[in-house]
Design a protein around this nucleic acid. Structure first.
Lengths: 262, 262
DNA sequence: CAGGCATACTCGTATAGACGAGTGGGCAAG
DNA sequence: CTTGCCCACTCGTCTATACGAGTATGCCTG
């Protein structure tokens, strides 16, 4: 039997008009912030908190759901509720598509991860021709059908990113871009070999909560948003030659950009 | 008495091992996605759904809380649960700090919002000297104390962004930068007048769920993440002359960047 | 000693009921 | 007609209970 007496937590203020479950959430949050519960540590069980505060179990669960929504903790069935550890983040530099990074035989993702000491994997590779969505069609300049290259990226076994590249068929069909393995330097290297000299990229960044299918694909804990990045590659003639739609687990990424002061 | 018969919703599958509240959430989500409930529309009330599905009220509330966590709906006490409308977004262009945008008398935020037909406000202005946090100190190159300029930005009455600029005291003290109104072109114009010719900016972007204080400051609905952007300005000598820490309501922003293919 | 099972602990799901508080419409009194 | 109150409807909070399912541990059996 658990001896409880979770000495780190205070009492409720019955005179306060703050809801009880919020008061409990506040105390737990503060305890976490102060380091009384460290990353990965187990919080008191529901039963212990019921005992400690003298409230019903649903009230305690309600507190936990507040903290889950904030991304502070996560529950594991049969084990307990734990302070969510901050996973190692992947930093995306704004020069990651520079030509000088394209001469290796491996993809940028693999090279970076190796350098950071993580174990990278690429997964769920799928290459096919399909009808362009309204959005993609607009971005690529009114194309009807496109070549789509889908893949998922994992770091140390954890899915962190899901990306789809779209290319106009008149560019990609029949080239190595339409093969599962696009070869050294990736599709940007192939595009340039095909005479589409790249001029610049435009990136569009949003953050939002994931859809259920994204939760599944990225195995996201509750309270983790996604970063949605859409990159369009333009050649020197101003034509959009590729659109890459990427959904990233927000807790696994920091994006870096360098801007000239002009 | 409500006549219910919310004909748009199906039945539960008792053989499914998917939890009842998830099935209900799924049906509501699908109805929203299909446009059966439009933006801003009211969903059936808890009581109606209790009736329709023959489940207890807590189960229905549980479904709603799933959708709230996804940022799809929001509840209004005494009124109902509504499909969350997508607010107008502010697009941040990567050239927004170019010198050519600095000659007007008004701040970039005001100019942009006016152009977009929204009503901009700046709020909670606070300028003071304070101790630099560990992080800020590191970014500015080991300064102890800094000038901090805090302000909140609103669009059509809605808070969308909360920003703090930090500057080393040896640069900012006694200048117009230390005044509430930094003058035309903002602090970057003043910095250049003071001889700190700007070379480039570095921006660091994260997305996460907001802290309770951020929820309050930005009046965030549940299920809305924040974008956390930290920008460092460097002068031509490579010195960091300003750090701007910005927290944005993620549903109000799209960030745009343009990258050279190098 | 190894394997398997029982058990106690964990969270997950669901029910039923109670009261409170915000909102808005309708009715009644002035 | 206007004012003000009441009531019905909404979601918010909380209690108490029940059973299910995942996990870990230790004991018991072979």
């Amino acid at each position: 039997m658990p001896s409880l007496s979770s000495g780190l937590l205070g009492d409720l203020d019955p005179t306060s008009d703050r809801a009880v479950f919020r008061q409990i959430a506040d105390q737990l949050r503060e305890a976490i912030d102060r380091g009384r519960f460290k990353e990965g540590a187990k919080l008191p069980s529901e039963a212990e908190l019921v005992e400690h505060y003298g409230v019903s179990r649903m009230t305690v669960r309600n507190s936990f759901s507040v903290l889950q929504g904030e991304g502070l903790v996560h529950a594991e069935h049969g084990k307990g509720v734990f302070v969510r550890p901050r996973p190692p983040v992947r930093r995306l530099a704004s020069d990651r598509f520079a030509r000088r990074h394209r001469d290796q035989g491996k993809s940028a993702f693999i090279v970076e991860a190796d350098a950071a000491g993580s174990h990278p994997q690429v997964d769920g590779l799928e290459v096919k021709e399909e009808k362009a969505s309204q959005d993609i069609s607009t971005r690529l300049g009114s194309v009807r059908r496109v070549l789509a290259r889908r893949r998922r990226y994992l770091l140390d076994g954890r899915p962190v990113e899901f990306a789809t590249s779209y290319l106009p068929l008149d560019i990609a069909r029949g080239t190595q871009i339409a093969e599962p393995n696009p070869g050294p330097g990736g599709i940007y290297a192939r595009l340039e070999e095909l005479g589409h000299r790249l001029d610049h990229f435009e990136e569009e960044i949003r953050a939002r909560m994931p859809s259920p299918s994204e939760v599944k694909t990225l195995r996201l804990a509750s309270g983790v948003p996604v970063i949605h990045l859409v990159r369009t590659a333009f050649d020197t003639e101003g034509r959009a030659v590729e659109v890459c739609d990427t959904v990233m687990a927000a807790d696994a990424y920091v994006l870096n950009y360098q801007l000239p002061a002009t």
